[in-house]
Amino acid sequence: MRLTDFRALTFDCYGTLIDWERGITAALAPLVERAGKPLTRDEVLEAHARHESQQQRYTPEMPYSDLLAVVFRRLAEEWGVHAAASEAAAYGQSVKQWPAFPDSASTLQYLKKYFKLVVLSNVDNESFAHSNAKLQVDFDAVITAEDVGSYKPARRNFDYMLDLLPSLGVRKDEVLHVADSQFHDLQPCSELGLRSCWIYRRFEQRGFGATVRTMGEPAVEFKWTSMAQLVKAHHEELSKG
């Protein structure tokens, strides 16, 4: 199988294109400093993943910025820290400041020349608009949790995307889903028979970071540690003809 076999790339955004772990830890730093015990970066991210996934399951229609405010309050309770409502609300808005990975914008601009590009993201539309400005590319379609009314890994998010693709002139077998998260993306893709590419951003780190731990490793068609490697592989395919 070759990258040039596909006509569309669908992307998870946060963790794949936007460095959400860096954004999360920076925005939570003041809260962590007030915690009753020292917390490692991984402990912070794993606690965040646990509360976030639980809240997404119980309130699937809650906008992501509001959901993050709830996660902030749950973390404060767990760590025994008093947190003002204004702090929780500010954390909910912090997505707008989360940075892109250094290779995201340039690689997306390259891929735009060869593929339809679609985002399937677990955020609200306003938050994504700020992230999109950092990615510097016009996606052919943007699908958020706010649009669908649920959060990945719910199957309906992927069904929504697959139902939309024919309007772009793309079939399911012409799509490659590109993502970092096994829990949110790669496992559902495996279950749906949707081909996928793992951008393994955490290859030099232990654990699952800001995503829920999964059992085993889902099968994927491609695996790289950066978007730049994906682009390099595509360029090599073109050069070989």
Score class of each variant (00 low, 15 high):
Ala69Phe: 10
Ala69Glu: 05
Val70Ile: 15
Val71Gln: 11
Val71Trp: 07
Phe72Leu: 07
Arg73Glu: 14
Arg73Phe: 11
Arg73Asn: 08
Arg74Trp: 06
Glu77Gly: 13
Glu77Ala: 15
Glu78Thr: 10
Glu78Trp: 12
Glu78Phe: 12
Gly80Asn: 11
His82Val: 14
Ala83Tyr: 07
Ala83Thr: 12
Ala84Lys: 15
Ala85His: 10
Ala88Leu: 02
Ala88Asp: 02
Ala90Arg: 13
Gly92Tyr: 00
Val95Arg: 03
Lys96Met: 08
Gln97Lys: 10
Trp98Ile: 02
Phe101Ile: 10
Ser104Val: 01
Ala105Tyr: 06
Ser106Leu: 06
Thr107Val: 13
Thr107Gln: 13
Leu108Cys: 01
Leu111Thr: 04
Lys112Leu: 06
Lys113Thr: 14
Phe115Asn: 03
Phe115Gln: 01
Phe115Asp: 01
Lys116Phe: 09
Leu117Arg: 01
Leu120Tyr: 03
Asn122Ile: 04
Asn122Val: 06
Ser127Cys: 03
Phe128Thr: 00
Ala129Tyr: 02
Ser131Cys: 13
Asn132Ile: 00
Asn132Gln: 15
Lys134Cys: 06
Val137Arg: 05
Val137Asn: 02
Asp138Lys: 14
Phe139Gln: 07
Phe139Ser: 04
Asp140Gly: 02
Val142Trp: 02
Ile143Glu: 00
Ile143Asn: 02
Thr144Ala: 08
Ala145Glu: 02
Ala145Lys: 02
Asp147Arg: 05
Gly149Lys: 09
Ser150Pro: 03
Tyr151Leu: 06
Lys152Gly: 06
Ala154Pro: 00
Arg156Tyr: 09
Asn157Asp: 13
